[in-house]
Design a binder for these strands. Structure first.
Lengths: 132, 132
DNA sequence: TATGGGGTTTCCCGTGATGGGAAGGTCAAG
DNA sequence: CTTGACCTTCCCATCACGGGAAACCCCATA
């Protein structure tokens, strides 16, 4: 399989696939003409990576997940620990964003949004009572 | 005021303040020795920037907000439009993160997390039924 | 056989918003 | 005069790619 087909099937840009090879996440073979030659196992790994990235795992997390995936002697507790720590990061981010949403939402609701210059959003950002 | 004091009072690292000058968000004076010399107005702008960044606005959004803040002839509708568009981006991100949280959370709950290799998290990421 | 068009390769630069750290100038206190 | 804290500029690194150039490869058609 050449890179374009594998890209289509894994749902990843060709650029990303080359990058993943460069950082050692996959090791496709090479044809005589220098083209990358992907096996089914490469495609499988790329699809795994695409899904893990879609769940927000960092590249290094993905590397660890892939290693666990390929290690038949793994303990599921190792996988779960990784996933739980990522879940915690996700929850933190959500909390942070919700804080922003609440603060900014209140300012937006207080703003008339007309042609006049008076703006609670600006005074809110400027004032000491903002972003508590 | 030298940079360290202004950094402490604005709640920003000195590095960040230098960067903000470099990209033209602030224009502090210079003392004879080459040191930056911050006025109260610079401090005020930096505090504004720190809060706007804390609300998740991008640097370019901050530039626009600062311009509006300094423009006495602004229309509050312009500010509100900017803020609402940012609020929408925040909501999108929250939705995306909640999707991840739901999917990954379900996988984590299904995983025994013991010494055995069987792991619904890995098969979930590997399988076609993962990530919507 | 030439030509065209698409696929592929490597290489280098850019992103956003800083952080780290080196090399060197300046200032106030002891 | 020295020490140590502060300041300066400059360059490189982050993270996960994306854009685009220059060159090579393959296949089909005229």
């Amino acid at each position: 399989m050449n890179i374009k087909e594998v890209a289509a099937r894994a749902g990843l840009p060709a650029k990303t696939i080359r990058y993943y090879e460069e950082i050692g996440l996959i090791r496709p073979l090479r044809a005589a003409n220098g083209y990358r030659s992907f096996r089914e196992s490469d495609l499988h790994k790329l699809a795994f990576l695409a899904r893990a990235r879609g769940l927000g795992f960092s590249i290094e997390d993905c590397r660890a997940l892939l290693a666990l995936y390929e290690d038949r002697a793994r303990a599921s507790s190792d996988v779960k620990a990784l996933a739980e720590s990522h879940l915690a990061r996700i929850a933190e981010k959500i909390a942070e964003l919700r804080g922003m949403e609440a603060t900014l939402g209140a300012l937006v609701r207080a703003c008339a949004g007309d042609a006049r210059p008076d703006c609670p959003i600006l005074t809110g950002i400027a004032g000491k009572d903002c972003c508590g």
